[in-house]
């Protein structure tokens, strides 16, 4: 059947979960990816060691609503602003950016100021991440 408002409402949220930078720990990213899938979302997982350029190009091609970045290397202050800058250059301002990892509060504040919609610390419940992802993807 052709499209209807019903189908629009059930259109799955698409999320890219990426790991920019050099750290080699993707357990957390995978747990989050799985939780989002189990909440009915389509999750594109890009794997380790992605450059900001690669992440933004993948987000563009996959037409995602949300980009989730997992960063444990401590390089968030360079990686995240670069991702946001590249999204802007591509005209993808409507894509929401979330960050997970070990981020000191003052850094987190600076990232929020740049436009990051949420910063999740290591102990965050996956339910909270799911709830937040859903609300920011739909509210966009």
């Amino acid at each position: 059947m052709t499209g209807s408002s019903e189908e629009k409402a059930t259109r799955p949220i698409r999320v890219l979960v990426g790991k920019p930078g050099l750290d080699g720990h993707d357990r957390g990213a995978k747990v989050v990816a799985r939780a989002l899938r189990d909440a009915g979302m389509e999750v594109i997982y890009t794997g380790l060691h992605q450059t900001p350029e690669e992440i933004v190009e993948a987000a563009l091609q996959e037409d995602v609503d949300v980009v989730g970045l997992s960063i444990l290397s401590g390089a968030h202050n360079t990686l995240v602003p670069r991702v946001i800058e590249l999204l802007r250059t591509q005209g993808m301002d409507d894509v929401q950016v979330m960050v997970g990892g070990i981020i000191p509060e003052e850094d987190a504040q600076a990232l929020r100021q740049l436009g990051v919609v949420a910063v999740f610390g290591p102990g965050t419940e996956t339910e909270e991440i799911v709830r937040f992802t859903r609300s920011c993807a739909r509210g966009a």
């Binding site: 009915g40 979302m41 594109i44 997982y45």
Partner: peptide, 11 residues
Amino acid sequence: FSGGALLGDRV
């Protein structure tokens, strides 16, 4: 069950 999917081929 959920209708969601884990799309991992980009890895």
